[in-house]
Design a protein around this nucleic acid. Structure first.
Lengths: 335, 335
DNA sequence: AATGTCAATGTAATCGATTTCAGCCGCCAG
DNA sequence: CTGGCGGCTGAAATCGATTACATTGACATT
């Protein structure tokens, strides 16, 4: 049981060389003669030496860490993306630091955007202040984005994704289609709402204010939307709804089912995200599949490219997919 | 737009003092006279100086980071716990580093258990090799644990939690109760299986091998268990099942429903974990609620206590709760 | 007046690795 | 025999902050 950290000078002394040589063996072995190299390597093995990262980082003026700024770590949607990020960053030799932007104050955010804290930033929260991030550490945005922040973005085409959902419902014959949106001010909310409106307009279908429910991505918002929907007269309310998140769709379905409403016979539901569980509920949810892991992976790769000196400011748009399951059907006759 | 990092000597020069004084103003202001302090503070403000963490860490022989070793970052169960960890670590001035033990190889694990990488470790994966973690960085275990590793553990009483589920079903009148377990070798699997067996034995109920399905916590395992259950003759198969995870329970319910089986009328189901969504599916899942966020918070607090020099090696057991929803009912008469 | 105390500040060592620069040695060409 | 070159190595500077120790001057004590 070794208690004192062995440092490079210990190894050097044991091997009978200078610290410079030890360092070279570790980082650029070809530079050192075979004999010395072997001596150093066995000294390293004997002492169990591992370089001190803080010292190395200080000298290299880098940290080896990349921070992901997440709005809500507890949300499974984000954890999938983080998983994708981690799968790229780990093998590339970077540490993944995670900061929950809701938990930590604005002051801390500035700390994270510090070159001495992290070499780069992956921003998953579009509601952060642009000025706190501008002109600091290299960053990319994933999924969400901060308006007015010029940074590479890895995302989906939210408007046309929302349009896919509408098209599917319209093709089934629905004419009164509603939408439950995300939180006000969120960039995704706006894009998906706009895409919904555009797709409806393109088919000459109405989209009155009463067909839009303000949500916030949460299960509870889905339940609230259900209460409002149930309160509308059955021959006026939408026969189908698109949701800005699967969680809301799930909350809606659970709530209306408890009132004897059948999905999809009485109302069709399309979610958004394709989180894992919702393929297994009854009815299995029709939804827009986001490539969660790929979003994270690509964002991480883009950031690595930026760090390697390849600027490339354009956005990366990943494809989505309409996954048709059992929560959508043609509207009941006469509705 | 400032491009060169300002360092402490720049501030010192501007304020007309030595770097030592600047450092003291920043870390121990009371040590410096009011005049000098004001001069330094305005120089700091003027330059926008922020200390270099690598240099500070090197000098302090600490990293300011804590690593969480997670088996599967994409699993919502773990992300809730991480969220709890983050909520404690952030305010305490620590960075949270996350490593996915499945993604990163065993070599990397050793790196993370390095004092120069992290000041402490929170282990959420009980399948890691004890020898890789022993005698290194201070650590605590949460939820799962590594056998033979003497470290503070923050967890629930898995055996009695599993017993709660059995008791509930037995009280409803079920006599053939099955269990779908976690992956072989997992400490939780063993504890929950043992608790299930003990509770059944205490009530004189049978627990044959055929009533145990080997799972792995995943949705798919639940589906597989459903196929096996469906294949058993209706008057011999269990009238109720307890699951080692909600995900498996969810996969089971979805699969049997597709075969016309009604839950809970035809079979009762009890999950484990109480992940968010399963309260909103139909039927709402009866389950054992784990205090996810609290597990993370307490684990983080215990680690901070260890780092502060309070050893305290005993386990912390957090309470669980049986949440009765709609997936359990008395067995059909005559079964 | 000599001495001690204390507060405020500066000087320089330190944390541990990397890297520049210079020196040494051996060998080859002139 | 000498100048030059290339391969290998070590001494020392460096990264940027913290802190042990030394210094200064003001003031109190005897």
């Amino acid at each position: 049981m070794r208690h004192i950290r062995t440092k490079i000078s210990d190894v050097a002394r044991l091997a009978g060389v200078s610290t410079a040589t030890v360092s070279r063996v570790l980082s650029n072995p070809a530079m050192v003669s075979a004999d010395t190299r072997a001596a150093v390597q066995s000294a390293v093995a004997a002492t169990g030496y591992r370089p001190n990262m803080a010292a190395r980082n200080l000298r290299h003026r880098r940290t080896g860490g990349i921070v992901a700024l997440v709005p809500d770590l507890a949300n499974p949607f984000f954890s999938k993306i983080l998983s994708g990020i981690a799968s790229v960053l780990g093998p590339a030799g970077y540490n993944l630091l995670i900061a929950d932007t809701r938990t930590s104050g604005a002051e801390r955010l500035l700390d994270y955007a510090e070159p001495s804290r992290a070499d780069g930033l992956i921003v998953l929260d579009g509601s952060l202040p642009a000025e706190a991030l501008r002109g600091r550490v290299p960053l990319v945005e994933a999924c969400e984005w901060v308006p007015d922040l010029a940074a590479p973005r890895v995302r989906i085409d939210n408007a046309s994704a929302a349009g896919l959902a509408v098209a599917h419902l319209a093709d089934l014959g629905h004419r009164r289609i509603g939408h439950v949106s995300g939180p006000a001010g969120n960039v995704l909310t706006q894009a998906r709402l706009a895409g919904t409106a555009a797709a409806l307009a393109a088919r000459g279908l109405p989209f009155p204010q009463t067909a839009i429910h303000d949500g916030d991505f949460s299960l509870e918002a889905g339940q609230r939307a259900a209460a409002l929907w149930l309160a509308q007269p059955a021959d006026h309310r939408p026969t189908a709804l698109t949701f800005a998140s699967d969680a809301m769709a799930c909350g809606f379905i659970g709530a209306v089912q408890r009132h004897g409403i059948r999905v999809p016979q009485d109302v069709s539901v399309v979610g958004f995200d394709d989180i894992e569980l919702i393929a297994h509920i009854t009815p299995a949810l029709t939804t827009i599949r986001q490539p969660h892991a790929a979003l994270g992976r690509v964002a991480a790769q883009r950031l690595l490219a930026v760090l390697a000196g390849q600027p490339g400011a354009e956005d990366t748009i990943l494809p989505v997919e309409l996954v048709i399951r059992s929560s959508t059907a043609a509207p009941a006759p006469g509705r």
